[in-house]
Simulated scan of single mutants.
Amino acid sequence: MPAAPLRLAVINSSVREGRFGPTVARWFVTQAEERADMEVDLIDLADHALPHQLSHSPGKEVTALLGGVSPRLAEAEAFVVVTPEYNHSFPASLKNLIDWHYTQWQAKPVGFVSYGGLAGGLRSVEQLRPVFAELHAVTVRDCVSFHNVWGQFDETGTLTDPTAASTAAKTLLDQLVWWGLSLREAREKRPYSS
């Protein structure tokens, strides 16, 4: 009996005005939606006003703000973070999302699609790996990286040469499905506790 499709949340992490993230995220979501082994949920952080102060007992306002994102993260069985590189790191909006959640990430795989200039956002990915490890998530090795991203997409948001990026996306998605289904089975047999 084939496994139920993996529930994948794709997180577009940049909220800056004029951001390029929606173009990259839409391209990746299209790649993922072509597969029968996953269901895709695109979460754009610009659509969610996350709170700015941490509290161990959030009030009603904070709970309401998180209400649009938290259940979607909890439902996901795997994640792909679409991230730019800002000042050799990842966006504050993404760190805010990560820090407001804990159990939602546990025992689930996380993949990365990065973009930027010469480094292609890879420095942000390398800083995210230990952050997700602290949250008991598993980061997959391979990622998709767009170096000098602005010259790779045309004015309609289409990749001018999709060969290498599509191959990288397939590798990333294959790894996410393997980890995601394996961890789903493990969580069903033995609930995860940290």
Rank of each mutant, 00 (worst) to 15 (best):
T23Q: 02
W100H: 14
L66Q: 07
G116F: 00
G116S: 10
T103G: 14
L159P: 01
E33Y: 01
V29L: 10
H48W: 12
W178S: 13
F90C: 05
H88G: 06
L42W: 00
P109W: 02
G59L: 12
E185N: 08
S93E: 11
F20I: 13
N12S: 15
Q104W: 06
D161Q: 13
L183K: 00
A74D: 12
F90V: 08
S70R: 13
G68C: 13
R190M: 12
T30Q: 15
Y115S: 06
E17C: 07
W105Y: 12
G121K: 06
E126G: 04
A107H: 08
W179G: 00
L183P: 01
V177F: 00
K108Q: 05
T167A: 15
P5C: 12
F146M: 07
V81W: 02
L135E: 06
H136I: 02
P191F: 09
P71I: 13
T83L: 04
T171L: 15
R129I: 12
I43T: 03
Y86L: 11
T23K: 07
A49P: 01
E188H: 10
A4R: 07
G111I: 03
T167N: 10
S145T: 08
V81C: 06
S194Q: 03
Q106T: 13
E34A: 15
S13Q: 04
K108R: 14
H48M: 04
S13H: 03
E33M: 14
A78G: 05
T160M: 13
S145I: 01
T139H: 04
V140T: 09
Q53P: 01
R7C: 06
G111W: 00
M38Q: 06
A164N: 05
S145Y: 00
R184W: 06
A168N: 11
S114T: 15
S14F: 04
L66E: 04
I11T: 06
S89C: 15
T63C: 05
G68W: 05
G68V: 10
V138F: 02
A64T: 15
V82T: 03
G67Q: 06
Y192N: 07
K95W: 05
L122K: 10
T158E: 15
V29D: 02
L45A: 07
A168E: 11
L135S: 05
G116C: 06
P2M: 12
G111V: 07
L66R: 05
G151C: 02
V140I: 14
G68A: 11
G21Y: 04
A74Q: 14
V149I: 03
L73D: 03
D99Q: 13
E39A: 15
D37L: 13
N148W: 01
H52F: 13
A186Q: 11
P51S: 09
T30E: 15
K108M: 04
S55L: 05
N96T: 15
Y192K: 04
S57E: 13
L118T: 14
P22H: 08
L176H: 00
G68P: 05
V110K: 09
I98Q: 02
Q127K: 14
V177A: 12
K170V: 09
